[in-house]
Design a protein around this nucleic acid. Structure first.
Length: 154
DNA sequence: GCCAACGTTGGC
DNA sequence: GCCAACGTTGGC
């Protein structure tokens, strides 16, 4: 089982939006970056755990815990000319983009801000904290995962 | 709103 | 296949 961090802008889709879905389950669409797509397509499996991360907002940080409930499948928003995620180069034969199904397990008892994450030596290697990293989906090690869970629960 | 960093595009 | 131009991300 692997661990992940998935970014979303709360103005567009927040952890509370996911919490409001039936069974707190939804799909994670709109990923238009190859490296992030490849993580979903090649490595994400049912049962994997993922942090819900709020980006581009007043207090960026980790806010929730999700579980992958469906492995990668076609992101049809790429084919929908009315979608904001429309990709003119995507075709039915080669849709290019995939999404996964996710379920919110719970919100963290205490959100862990980016500002706080940066203060811990144990997390120094997280890609999230590396200068210039813009990946919207990135792997998290078990150590980092456990460390953040402990922070939020204590 | 600014801007550094990075990814993608497209002319050559 | 190079690389300049452009668009996007995302923290601040």
């Amino acid at each position: 089982m692997k661990y992940w961090l998935m970014k979303s802008e709360p103005d567009a889709y927040s952890v509370d939006d996911l919490a409001a879905q039936p069974k707190k389950t939804d799909y994670w669409d709109g990923i238009r970056n190859y490296q992030a797509r490849n993580f979903m397509r090649d490595e994400m499996k049912i049962g994997d755990q993922a942090f819900f991360y709020h980006s581009s907002c007043a207090e960026p940080g980790v806010v929730g815990i999700m579980e992958v409930v469906r492995a990668a499948y076609t992101d049809n928003s790429a084919l929908d000319s009315k979608s904001k995620y429309f990709d003119p180069k995507a075709t039915a034969e080669n849709p290019r983009w995939v999404m996964v199904g996710v379920r919110l397990k719970r919100k963290l008892k205490r959100a862990i801000s980016l500002r706080e994450l940066k203060t811990y030596k144990a997390l120094i290697d997280m890609p999230l904290l590396q200068r210039g990293t813009r990946l919207s989906i990135m792997p998290v090690t078990k150590k980092q995962w456990d460390y953040i869970i402990k922070l939020s629960d204590s």
